[in-house]
Amino acid sequence: MHESVDSLEIEPGMALEHQRRGALLLDVREDLERAAGYARGSIGLPRAAIEARIASLAPALDREILAICASGGRSLLAAKTLRELGYAHARSVRGGHARWQREGLPMEQGELDVDAAERYARHLVLPEVGVAGQRKILHARVVLVGAGGLGAPIALYLAAAGVGTLTLIDDDVVDRSNLQRQIIHTDARVGVPKVESARAMLNALNPGVRVESVRERLCGANVEALLRGHDVVVDGADNFPARYLLSAASLRLGLPLVYGAVHRFSGQISVFDPRRADSPCYRCLFPQPPSAAEAPNCSEAGVLGVMPGIVGLLQANEVLKLILGIGEPLVGRLLCHDALAGTFRELRLPRDPDCPGCGANARFDGYEDIAALCAM
């Protein structure tokens, strides 16, 4: 004989009273749903895992179990499953969390708020990320030097991912010639400082991200102050003085540096992480700055518009890997992309024992000397 729905359900207020007298309140929603908040004192156990795990939570079959879900549907099915497993006092909380909250019954704040639980839902279902990983992203502080070609995709995807604080450093203004590749800017913002243009776009994309804009040119006098207090440094610069300053400062501050560069139809990406003994630094790759003839900038040599997008997205990926502590960062490896051939090639980049930046005999004489070296 089938039991009626009424016999399997209990009103939320009554469920609270039974919980206080020892009943087990079992939240049968998925973990990502609980991340937005849950009934106080409830234990999370997704409905699909009940048969495998309920015995460890309730060894005694005479334990009263009250299942609760979002609106009462899944918990009713859960109660039926529990009855079939021998838990004769299993019932479903009528109306679920929706009604529990409407009646003002006690709740616990989840690890993520409602907006975050919905916004980052595709992250939360990844075992490598989940709630714990998303919280790491939400608390991360990333500094990005350059709000142009590389900085545009890097900033957009890091903001979309929920990086808690994103500091943008750039002293330039938006020019119409930027718009072919610097997708964070718009025609209406030509003449506006790039950091302000970028901040407007990022705030529109994800209001939960704190965007700090610094309209300054990186130099020896400010580099350490601007980088200090962050977790990851991202090189989106378009000039060698900035890159050599970033390399020196990241070494002195012990901060990982995510490097990227583009030229015409090619690009390269690597990670320099001074926290690892085996990691090279930027000067292991370029001990001395090349001449202007050897490395012309984009305005002189040109660049295919999509190139900064491809390289910038790969840099953003490396940043997220570092924050989450997953995968294998591009430390000791230089990833090279040829857009015309449609190929990626990985080159080994070992640490140079004679490197003027991180070698055993490396000598730091101040940031002014580094800037002077690049000007020679």
Rank of each mutant, 00 (worst) to 15 (best):
L313R: 14
Y38T: 13
V214L: 11
R94S: 14
E33H: 04
L144G: 02
H89T: 09
D170Q: 05
A49M: 15
Y259G: 02
A198Q: 00
I154C: 13
V173K: 05
D365Q: 10
L57V: 09
R99G: 01
Y38Q: 11
E346Y: 00
A60F: 09
R363T: 14
G164P: 03
V262I: 12
A375D: 04
G359M: 03
M107A: 09
Q134E: 12
G208T: 07
L347T: 08
E9H: 02
P350D: 09
D365G: 13
A23D: 07
Y87H: 09
R348I: 02
E9K: 13
E3P: 09
A375F: 11
A147Y: 00
V262K: 05
Y367K: 14
A159N: 07
A15T: 05
Y38C: 03
E328S: 11
R141M: 11
V143I: 12
A60R: 07
A339E: 00
A237K: 13
D273T: 00
D62G: 07
S71Q: 12
Y38L: 09
P12W: 10
A88V: 11
E17Q: 10
G191L: 05
C374T: 15
E17H: 09
S7R: 15
G229C: 01
C284G: 05
D365N: 06
E216Q: 12
M376Y: 13
Y282M: 10
K321H: 01
V223N: 12
L124A: 05
M376K: 15
L205W: 01
G146Q: 13
E300R: 12
P127R: 01
R135A: 07
A67P: 11
S197K: 11
P274Y: 13
R135L: 08
A225R: 08
E64T: 10
A88P: 10
L373C: 08
C374P: 03
P356K: 12
L144V: 00
D115T: 10
D115F: 09
Q268A: 02
A372Q: 10
P353C: 10
P290R: 10
R122A: 15
G72V: 14
V223L: 13
G44D: 04
H139W: 01
E196T: 15
V131A: 14
M376W: 10
G95Q: 07
P106L: 14
N317E: 04
G110W: 02
A90K: 02
D170N: 02
Y38N: 07
S92I: 05
A362W: 06
W100H: 08
E118Q: 12
S270T: 00
M376T: 15
V163I: 04
V319Y: 12
C355E: 03
